[in-house]
Amino acid sequence: MLEIESNSPAQTEYIGYGIGKKLLSNQKIIALYGGLAAGKTTFVKGLARAFDFLSDVTSPTFTLVNEYDGKVKLYHYDMYRVKSWEDLVSTGFFDLDSEDVAIVEWSENIDRYFPDGVLKIKFKIIDVKKNKRMIIINN
């Protein structure tokens, strides 16, 4: 387990970039946990940049999934409204290829359906006023 402290959105984004650069070739699902405004989407912005995707990254709250064309295909999911296996099927989550990378916000809703070997990253707000957050990586 690794704990990293972030004190600004820029730092959160940079941590995302650093983790994106260090991902192993077999780490295809990155599960993000944490409530509203915990820094998940900001983290994904940095992570996508590590995959050479330089355009805008936005939260897929309404679209359920955003597709980014980097050096591999990145699928950015938001599972806030996805609660059951039937819902998950209809997001296309099970249709990903072995080369694709999935970054999943609100993983707490569906993590019982994840295969083994998922990289789990938790976001905890420590102090809202100081923008302080803890990013906890389990692998």
Binding site: W85, E86, V89
Partner: peptide, 10 residues
């Protein structure tokens, strides 16, 4: 024919 109905259809 999804067999399981997606959320939007349910």
């Amino acid at each position: 024919l999804y067999v399981c109905a997606p959320k939007a259809e349910k």
